[in-house]
Write a protein that binds this DNA or RNA. Structure first.
Lengths: 144, 144
DNA sequence: AGCACTATTGCGAATTTTTTGCGTTAGTGT
DNA sequence: ACACTAACGCAAAAAATTCGCAATAGTGCT
């Protein structure tokens, strides 16, 4: 077997690391998510993917991959699930337009630095696995 | 008309302020949400409400009230919409158990203090209306 | 490379969640 | 008390997600 490129090899490695079988569908999904670089809904994924697998399979892949932590589920305000795969930017947040859905990344995460204090103050939790921070507003285009 | 109590009067005022008609259903919904004090799903609401109105009405009320900003939509990880009404604590965040859904409030919001800087760094947004910060983990009960 | 094993996928249908249309009811202002 | 119309009830549709099971395709071993 021969490496297509470093991007694909990285996707394969991520799958292998989590003991997933390296199926063409999963690799393609990761590459698609990475290429777009923004959180995508299931419909977004299907529309960007000409020979997409069955919808049920896409749901299953997204659930499995996000459970494993390879991809990240992003809570938009629309209610429908969005997912992103950004191995380059391991952890970041978003500004989401409540009109058109445009998403801009926020690279700097200042939550980590205070998470320890947050955990200390909690009564029913003694640890935290992850957090989600999204900013909502109308982007410059929609604001006109 | 006579005030039932300060809590109910406050709910009515919130509705009046936003030019909503003060219907018994809306008042009851706000009182319920306030009494529980935690984000509730539609199913939670229906199960806590013996003579609840039609499900479609509950959806409509929740959408309208959250659009107006009276109640707040909370993004849990489950994907189903949750809503809370906490006029006592105007703005706060949550720790949410990924197993059982238990939610603990986090009173202190440290996001506001850096939001101005965040906005400055954004390219496609020049203002932000709101933000959502949730912490996920397994609560002490589920961790055993 | 070929084989056996089992995780994944496809497909269709079922479930769950949310939205919509329209006739009826109930708040609101006069 | 009346008129006006926002809200509601009901039933049905649409959208989003999950499930069961047979078929397929990775993986490890030889």
């Amino acid at each position: 077997m021969e490496a297509k490129n470093v991007t694909e090899e990285e996707a394969r490695l991520a799958l292998r690391t989590h003991s997933f079988r390296i199926t063409t569908a999963r690799v393609k999904l990761l590459l698609l998510l990475r290429r777009i670089g923004k959180p995508l809904s299931i419909q977004d994924i299907l529309s960007h993917w000409s020979d997409a697998p069955n919808q049920a399979t896409v749901y299953r892949m997204l659930t499995d991959l996000s459970d494993a932590g390879i991809i990240k589920r992003v809570a938009t305000q629309s209610g429908t699930a969005h997912f992103e795969y950004t191995p380059d930017y391991p952890h970041h947040h978003h500004a989401i337009c409540t009109d058109c859905g445009t998403i801009e990344d926020i690279q700097h995460c200042f939550v980590d630095s205070i998470q320890k204090q947050v955990i200390k103050d909690l009564e029913t939790f003694s640890s935290i696995d992850s957090h989600s921070l999204e900013f909502f507003g109308r982007c410059n285009k929609c604001k006109i």
